[in-house]
């Protein structure tokens, strides 16, 4: 592969994330998958929102658009609709994607617009200091849940699947080979792709919830997850499934809009393509 550095804006390194933060591992895997797909940097647009996850955009030497909390997919939709030939990557945090950006998330999935979303799920709002997020779940200690959280969590995979995403997968920052493989498949997939990556926040999640060390959180990803379809998962129902959950072909939004243009122009030309709408 080309060197990792050739994809980075190295002048901003070392990065902003805390020691042991999983987001750097996702950046690492993402670069490898972009290299594996063989994309030219000028064809890549990364659109991010707000939070620790969003900072990925600043380090990558692509066209980068660092937007508003939760709104990255709405900005990305505008970029993609206007230039369907470009490849769009959207890293999002769990709060970014599923709380403030929940509506944009499900509607982008519904349209099946060709965008690759990476949900970096660390179950906490890290940048603002450790408040609980929509994936924290019940019983979690957070700076806004001092008596432990009573909020039920979202399952990003189920949400994306139900909303209509045509490629949905989950992995963790421990399973780095799987991470590269799934991101590569997601980028290649023609349609709305979501890869949820369980990522560790030792600073704000781990410290308050019984994990003193980064490596302990990674071991938890190793031991607490199992591959979809595996015997292990069938036997231990409390394990979190990893792998590909949805991989299907459905008409992509920009392709469909190209047909709308054809119909409109045929109607205007008085051709057989359709009638002028009233």
């Amino acid at each position: 592969m080309k060197s990792i550095d050739s994809y980075l804006r190295t002048r901003f390194m070392p990065h902003i994330w805390c020691p042991g933060c999983g987001h750097g591992t996702v950046l690492n895997g993402l670069i490898r998958s972009v290299d594996a797909v063989g994309l030219n940097k000028n064809e890549l647009v990364m659109v991010s929102g707000i939070g620790c996850s969003a900072r990925i955009a600043g380090y990558l030497d692509f066209h980068t658009l660092h937007t508003l909390h939760g709104r990255a997919l709405a900005f990305a939709t505008g970029v993609k609709m206007s230039r369907p030939d470009l490849t769009i990557l959207v890293p999002m945090g769990d709060g970014d994607a599923l709380a403030i950006g929940g509506n944009h998330f499900i509607h982008a999935a519904r349209r099946n617009i060709d965008i690759t979303v990476i949900v970096l799920n660390n179950r906490i709002y890290g940048m603002t200091g450790g408040q609980f997020s929509p994936t924290s779940g019940c019983g979690i200690q957070a700076t806004t849940a001092p008596y432990s959280s009573i909020d039920q969590p979202f399952d990003a995979v189920q949400l994306a699947s139900a909303a209509g995403a045509t490629f949905v997968a989950r992995t963790t920052t421990y399973h780095v080979n799987e991470l590269e493989q799934l991101l590569t498949r997601a980028i290649r997939h023609h349609g709305f792709s979501v890869v949820e990556v369980l990522s560790q926040c030792p600073t704000h999640f781990g410290r308050r919830n019984g994990h003193q060390e980064t490596v302990e959180m990674l071991r938890h990803f190793k031991e607490g997850t199992a591959k979809v379809g595996s015997r292990q998962l069938a036997e231990q129902v409390d394990l979190i499934p990893r792998g590909v959950f949805v991989d299907e072909e459905r008409p992509e939004y920009c392709d469909q809009y190209a047909e709308v243009i054809q119909r409109a122009q045929a109607a205007r030309a008085g051709g057989a393509g359709g009638e002028e709408p009233q």
């Binding site: 980075l8 070392p14 990065h15 933060c21 987001h23 591992t25 690492n28 895997g29 080979n177 990674l218």
Partner: peptide, 13 residues
């Protein structure tokens, strides 16, 4: 390559 790929700081080559 586990170290290189897991490294969150992209510091191992």
């Amino acid at each position: 390559e586990l170290c290189e790929r897991m490294c969150p700081d992209l510091a191992i080559h």
